[in-house]
Amino acid sequence: MDGREQKPEKVIEVRDLVAHYGERKILNGVSMDVYAGEIMVIIGGSGSGKSTLLRHVMALEHGTSGTVKILGRDPAALDAKEALDLRKKIGVAFQGGALFSSMTVGENIMLPLYEHTVLDRTTMEIMARLKLEVVGLAGFEDLMPAELSGGMVKRAAFARAIIMDPKILFCDEPSAGLDPVIAAALDDLLLRMREAMGMTIVVVTHELESAFSIADRITVLDQGRILLTGTTEELRETKIERIQNLLQRRTEEEIVDPEEYLERLMGERSGERARL
């Protein structure tokens, strides 16, 4: 809270973002700010639009309306060279790691260096080993991704994401599919990386425990809208029922119109129209 008064610079600025997948509206007027040096966690249930929001702030997709600014620049309005400069300043650790299966772990991590710098091979190897050291995978650079366990793949993905020393690090579901101990270790790793490199980290997750342990601020996304953005305390004290339900892991009673329910069971038009 106390750091917030001096308003550090905004590294990500999302305003009234609307996004569609085909005809379906996924994001419905989302606005969000992420400040330099903070860990922002975006949580929400499946289908809440959190992955879509992440894809937009990583500039993989551009919304139907609204604006996204990353480090003060709108990725949709950049030419190839400017976009490349922006890309070099962000790192992404994908959910499944997204390591290239035809390359060794070391080659995977060196790839951005190889493509964007003129360093010689030895220097690149040293840098890759340095990052592997950071994520606790020292000595694994010659293995193929298929030879790694799930947790190790994610660590390697972190190493690749931070090889260019990005200003912003995006993590998609860092602890999904991992056992609690390894998941906690990854959370620690995120905190340590922020400490060490001072980067801004945006994490998308549905693991509440991990969200609360790493977040400076949390954004709760639900059905394409932001319910709340605030610190963990603010989140715990909120009166918004859907958030409390989410925190208490209560399932919600869905209020249904009997006629609509009947129609749905009969497989009648309403569903089909909704899909169109």
Partner: peptide, 11 residues
């Protein structure tokens, strides 16, 4: 596997 996305975000 999002490897294509990974390439894109790496520039």
């Amino acid at each position: 596997n999002q490897e294509v996305d990974a390439l894109t975000v790496m520039g």
